[in-house]
Amino acid sequence: MMRRVLPYVLLGVGTLVVTFPFVWMITTAFKTQTEATMSTLNLWPSVWQWRNFAETFRAAPFARYFFNSFLVAFTVTAAVIVTSLMAGYAFARLEFPGSRILFGLVLATMMIPFEVTLIPNFVLIRRLDWYNAYPALIVPWCANAFSIFLMRQAFLSLPSDYFDAAKVDGCGHLRFLARIAAPLVKPMVVTVGLFAFLGSYNSLLWPLVVTSEEAMRVVQVGLTVFSGAEGVRLHLLMCASAIVILPTVALYFAAQRYFLEGSIGAGIKG
């Protein structure tokens, strides 16, 4: 009896600890200002203040921040999926001179810490006149070595009979990739896409450095600025945090079946 119940008790206690910040965030988001900044153990708001959310959107241009974040994150996600499908396929299925050296170079970019490229990239963005413009937020993140590597692994695991059969039917590499291979590696496409979206939507340092105008802020930068300006209006800050978290959590729930499959494969091989 003890041995059957104990794991559930421990996991349950862990769940309470891990989810407590979420619960506290949501209940605080619905409190009044005095209630939120009272030193109290009372978690529940006496009256649920729904208007806090409208007030948050009035207090700072979050609608604009969200527009920027979504525009950037969706473009980056789509671009990463396309570039990694193409490059991953080339490295997995094509034979050409220098393929191993090129693949080595691609993997090498994975080991460069972003701090090293931060300042030169900033200079490059200035030179290109992309400061305070969308390309600065999007273009540098349109391809990454890890996604290419994952996609290559996925293509390697496809039986080569598929390609041979398609070739006999007169289908070249490009049509094979678009019509047959890409749909077959869908779990990996979802995984790569989700990682790309999370990475782009949650990034802070790069957008902080390449944008200065309020209209160009993404939500993460907007939220840090908001917290500096509105530190005392805790209930509004929690509202803002909740709506910033919401899209990624929703996306995770929608994609998690594929996502976990994909990341499990990435974790144990290699």
Binding site: G14, T15, V18, T19, P21, F22, W24, M25, L198, Y201, N202, L204, V219, Q220, L223, T224, S227, L237, M238, A240, S241, A242, V244, I245, T248, V249, L251, Y252, Q256
Partner: peptide, 15 residues
């Protein structure tokens, strides 16, 4: 248990 990992570090830090 995976939920904190997908939430933005900035928003969670505010909490």
């Amino acid at each position: 248990y995976f939920l904190p990992y997908v939430t933005s570090a900035v928003a969670a830090a505010m909490v």
